[in-house]
């Protein structure tokens, strides 16, 4: 459903005058003529940066299942996962303008924000003495249906691409990268857990991320 006022109706200017006196329909932004459901993720972020709450709703609708899944996996605690999701979406609302399309895709940008929020919470939990109760790294790919069938096809396609990319790197690199991404362990702790020298672990992480970045460039 478009976010557009009809321009031909005689009563419409009255409503404009109520909201933006003395605004006229000619002040409508052209970007608003694109139905929000059809807007690209980058365009939605651009609109969110301008305070467009409809665009924010659409971003939430599209991304919340995947981002909630991520923070759940990292935190393994529903309450903390909800808090991390809330914190992340507030960040998106306030900082959407900082998204740089030259540097990464919108989903990569969002994933890294939410991952970092969740890891911060995991490390804070560690400092509070509860410990990292779940640091075992699961198999790197678990298929799961998207909540919204409308978005399922595209997301499943991306997941398939990611699965292939992950399978293309050696298991020791995949293990090191996964451990670093999901657990919030330090370099030394990762080395201890893997029973490998620190230098070797760093090299595995570098090679793994470089290869993944190369394989997935422009695909996410």
């Amino acid at each position: 459903m478009g976010n557009v006022f009809a321009l031909s109706d005689g009563y419409t200017p009255l409503l404009y005058s109520l909201i933006h006196a003395p605004a006229t329909p000619s002040k409508l932004r052209m970007s608003e003529t694109v139905p929000i459901e059809d807007a690209s993720e980058a365009a939605l972020l651009h609109r969110v940066a301008k305070g467009d709450s409809l665009a924010f709703d659409e971003v939430y609708r599209r991304w919340s299942p995947m981002l909630y899944g991520l923070v759940c996996k990292i935190l393994d605690d529903p309450k903390e996962a909800e808090d991390a999701l809330q914190e992340g979406f507030l960040h998106i609302w306030n900082k959407a303008g900082s998204y740089d399309a030259q540097r990464s895709s919108p989903t990569t940008w969002a994933y890294m924000i939410f991952r970092n929020k969740a890891i911060d919470r995991l490390r804070a939990r560690e400092r509070r003495g509860r410990g990292m109760e779940r640091i075992a790294v699961e198999e790197p790919f678990q298929a799961a249906p998207m909540a919204d069938p409308e978005d399922g096809a595209e997301s499943n396609e991306r997941r398939q691409v990611v699965k292939q990319a992950l399978e293309s790197i050696p298991p020791d690199q995949r293990e090191a990268v996964s451990l670093a991404f999901f657990t919030g362990l330090t370099q030394t702790e990762i080395a201890e857990r893997l029973g490998a020298p620190l230098g070797t672990v760093k090299a595995r992480i570098r090679r793994g991320l470089m290869k993944l970045g190369e394989t997935l460039k422009g695909k996410l």
Binding site: L70, V177, L212, L216
Partner: peptide
Amino acid sequence: ETGAAALAWTAPPR
């Protein structure tokens, strides 16, 4: 970051 975000895609959506 693109490479790292690949790991995020392995988390089942909820």
